[in-house]
Amino acid sequence: MPKAPTPRCIIVRHGQTEWSKSGQYTGSTDLPLTEYGVGQMKRTSECIFRNKFIDPNSITYIFTSPRTRARQTVDLILASLTQEQRERIRVVVDEDLREWEYGDYEGLLTSQIVELRKSRGLDRERPWNIWRDGCENGESTEQFGLRLSRAIARIQNLHRQHQAQGIASDIMVFAHGHALRYFAGLWLKHGEEKPCDGKKPVPATYQDETVPYVALKTYRHLVDNPSFLLDAGGIGVLSYAHHNIDEPALALAGAFVCPPEEESQHGATES
């Protein structure tokens, strides 16, 4: 039996919107893609599948933010696949993957946020850092980290199951600029770890009986910029070292697919 490749988590930022183009913070504002953004994602779809960067037959799940811009991007990425290929992929809409709730900063530029905070007497001792300080009347970094930690736990649990079954498993995650950079930081175990009660959120953040809920004993949140970039329409790849789900890693080769028999750098005897 051929060896299945190491599972991957492929993160995709939605295509261009008017506010991603202008640099305005876009959390709950439900913008569609621009005309350019639509064409951008159609081209990306054709490229990644035509060039075999991603084998559509290896995609087991797609998890997406509920926002229009993310769900529209999912549809455009899948558009170049056959109907049979699309029907094999389970698409799960997950509230945990929505963008940071920016509160008072929604729709503003970074420079405007800095001035707003200055006018309120904030940041006298050190500059504002969203990864540490969060957003006024929006989400703290702890709140954001908790829900993204939940999403990661579910994906890694599915990967563990698929690996045990010998199933090739690329799970794609469609979301937003801050959310995916934060997600990648947590995947690599950056930031601080804190205890949590493991209780399911009420209401549930997703509806899919094939995705087990994972009760967390701890979660992680960032305290500084993870120093990752992901432009609108960009794709990143997260995976595991040594074929081990307990060793999450960044796949520096990106979407380039290495045949399983050539994955010697991930071999169990390597360190």
Rank of each mutant, 00 (worst) to 15 (best):
V92W: 06
V114C: 02
Y102K: 01
S28W: 10
A255C: 15
K118C: 03
E106C: 00
Q207D: 13
C196I: 10
L76V: 07
L238K: 05
Y240S: 09
R126I: 06
Y61K: 03
T82V: 05
I77E: 15
N57G: 06
Q83F: 14
N51L: 14
G27A: 09
G23V: 00
L186W: 00
I155A: 04
V12K: 02
E261V: 09
Q40Y: 03
N137A: 12
R220N: 02
G37V: 04
Q207L: 08
Q207R: 13
P195I: 01
K217Y: 10
N225G: 06
S239Q: 13
R88T: 04
V173Y: 07
A175C: 07
E84G: 02
E142H: 05
P195H: 01
H266N: 14
R220D: 06
L148Y: 02
Q40T: 02
D133A: 00
H162E: 14
T34D: 13
T34N: 09
A255Y: 15
G103S: 02
I152A: 04
D123L: 02
L97E: 07
Q85Y: 02
W187Y: 06
C196M: 07
I171T: 06
K52Q: 06
D246R: 13
S58Y: 08
F174Y: 07
K194S: 02
A249D: 05
Y240L: 03
I152H: 14
A164W: 01
T26W: 06
L180C: 00
Q83S: 09
T60E: 13
L109T: 00
D224K: 14
E106V: 00
P7D: 05
D133W: 00
D104E: 11
I235T: 10
F63I: 10
S58C: 13
K189F: 15
P248T: 06
S20L: 03
E193M: 15
Y206H: 15
I59T: 01
W19E: 02
